[in-house]
Write a protein that binds this DNA or RNA. Sequence first.
DNA 1: CGGGATCCGTTATGATACTG
DNA 2: CAGTATCATAACGGATCCCG
Lengths: 134, 134
Amino acid sequence: MTTPKRQEGTSPTPGMLHVPGDCRAVTELLGRVGDKWTVLVVNTLGRGPRRFNELKRELGSISQRMLTLTLRALERDGLVTRTVFPTVPPRVDYELTGLGRSLLEPVSALGGWAVSNREAIAKARQRFDRRAGV
Amino acid sequence: MTTPKRQEGTSPTPGMLHVPGDCRAVTELLGRVGDKWTVLVVNTLGRGPRRFNELKRELGSISQRMLTLTLRALERDGLVTRTVFPTVPPRVDYELTGLGRSLLEPVSALGGWAVSNREAIAKARQRFDRRAGV
DNA sequence: CGGGATCCGTTATGATACTG
DNA sequence: CAGTATCATAACGGATCCCG
């Protein structure tokens, strides 16, 4: 054997997932929730129900199409309710379901991590890019 | 006014983010971490350091290319260290940094949510699709 | 107002072949 | 073993026009 041995018994990391199936579930969820807008929409709806164009305004740069698609997907997954008022002009309210609100917490945990470590990541990135740039 | 009033004062959701800047940070992170493989790789490395092909085998369906790209990105962000042993055949170990391990926790929180609510989502999806299928 | 339908460029990802 | 390079394609996302 020409390659060195790696030391075994690295301390088990707290909070990690242990079941292989879990990995798929997490990945599935992130594949679902990790798109460009879902989290933003969920967070905005976390501040209360919103109409379509209210959301659009608050999100600023989202296109109509993506907002529609995002909301449809959220509705499909039972995270958001869509209430149509048969008025003229039409009005549609979107609101988080219980399930949707429950998602807000782990997302916020991730958000907290993101905020706390944003700079560390930025610096690591700079270091890496400087080295690579040589 | 022809449209009904929405009741204000929806109970503030616990755990949500309050600062607009936070939203961007979360979205940025999810845009970064929410790709197809990052979480899976981080989780696998959470079980201990791994060699390139060990990872590839454990992840199963990942292509060589994507594993390389994923690992490079993780290294760039300071979440993973890459250790090259100048042996023959070559050997490269990947291992989570402290920062990488700290990410494991919020990711696991999200993972826990995913596992807990997977069925609820699946059922909501079925209901939605049945209705849409009419 | 709240979408649906379509077109089209960009990005992400996979397959394959080659290398130190 | 651990990549790199290239090509092909699929998914994503924006812009635009149209409708009830």
